[in-house]
Computed example of a mutant assay.
Amino acid sequence: MKHWLAGIFMVALITGCKKKVETIYPQIQAISESVYASGVVKSVNQYQVFPKNSGIISSLKIKEGDFVEKGQILFEIANPSAKLNIENAELNFENASIKSNQERLRDAVIAKDLAYQKLKNDSLLWRRQNALWQQQIGTKVDQEQRKLAYHNSQTAFQSAEIRVSELRRQIKFAAEQSAKNVALAKSIASDFAVRAEVSGRIYSFSKEIGEMVSIQNPVAIIGDAKVFMLELQIDEDDITRVKIGQKVLLTLDSYDKQVFEAKVNGIDPLMNEKTRTFTVKATFIVQPQVLYPNLNVEANIITAERPKVLTIPRNYLVDEQFVLDKDGQKRAVKVGLKDFQRVEILSGITAQDAIQKPAL
């Protein structure tokens, strides 16, 4: 009797310990495949401000958080010689201007006119002397002297013409050169006044009057005050699957449990050799109301979508190419798209075929 009861107990124990087999039927539903990306929010036209000259800040026109217009002065760098250079260039310009050289030009024109009058007079005298000589009046020497005087006057007039033309050229050249020197001096001086390259907001600025700035180090960050974009990092293994125009689903740490949509609008072609990633840029479809640069982003770029396909859970797939039927036998299947939870079945089973969950 005791042996019989013990047998029944062992059978019940074995039966109770046997794992229950889980079976399901494939489902028709939508599936999408995506590439994971992480990144940050950036303001449109965001850039770092670098001064064009090193030096000490002499005046501040803005503070962190201010809104600025393109071309507005942000701060000025001390440059005592700049003002003197401009004044010196302006003095040279005034001295070299055409207006300031009118007297010189007038003297040259008068000299040319006198030379012309002398040329006409000597021409007349030579013709008269030549006519007299034809009548055998006067001497050969008189005729030669009149002819020589005429030729000398002709040469003198041509020289006077050349001097006037050359003087005009020199005055024009000097005026243009001095004007360019004034513009150059002002341009150099303007480089000591650092201006905003875009209209937007000062997102970062921590310098004070009297502090040193250099051309190697940025002193501020400026970007659009209202429009933001995404800068995402994509692993080199996934970059060939990313295309411009693809949809992006993203979450922000500052917006808990909310999912936002964006669209890929740019792919930087050069890989970062240190991180082995590519930078992909995207724009919001509907932008959140409040955003700031450098907010953390996690995103999935949708690389493919199917609206109604046969799918099974990924953990029901064996060796990426088999499933277990209801009797536990392997059946080959052809798979398509995969997401984190499900996989598309292209062939091998139907929605009426029950499949088992593989044992772990």
Rank of each mutant, 00 (worst) to 15 (best):
E161S: 06
D238F: 08
A304P: 04
K186I: 01
I302G: 06
I234E: 04
I312E: 01
H3E: 13
V264C: 04
L84P: 01
K112A: 10
D224W: 08
I8G: 07
S38I: 07
S43L: 02
E69K: 13
V194S: 07
S123T: 15
S159D: 04
I188H: 13
V198D: 12
V290A: 12
E197K: 14
L337N: 05
R128V: 12
Q321Y: 03
V286Y: 04
E94W: 06
K274H: 13
N79Y: 14
V44D: 10
A115R: 03
A131Y: 13
I28Y: 14
N88R: 12
A183P: 01
S100L: 01
D113Y: 11
K207L: 06
K330Q: 15
V286P: 00
Q29C: 03
S214E: 11
G348V: 10
A12T: 11
Q356G: 02
K147P: 00
S214A: 04
F284E: 02
K140M: 03
E197M: 09
K112Y: 07
K63T: 13
K357Q: 10
V44E: 10
Y150D: 01
L132Q: 12
A183K: 14
D66W: 07
F67P: 00
T283V: 08
N121C: 02
A96C: 01
N265K: 10
F67A: 04
T251A: 04
E344N: 11
A282S: 11
Q321S: 13
A299Q: 03
P293I: 05
Q135C: 04
Y47N: 05
P358G: 05
F278T: 00
Q129K: 11
A225K: 07
F192H: 15
R314V: 14
M1R: 14
S123M: 05
T283H: 09
V49E: 07
V290T: 15
V323E: 10
Q29R: 11
G223T: 07
V40G: 06
L337A: 08
K357L: 13
S34Q: 04
R146K: 06
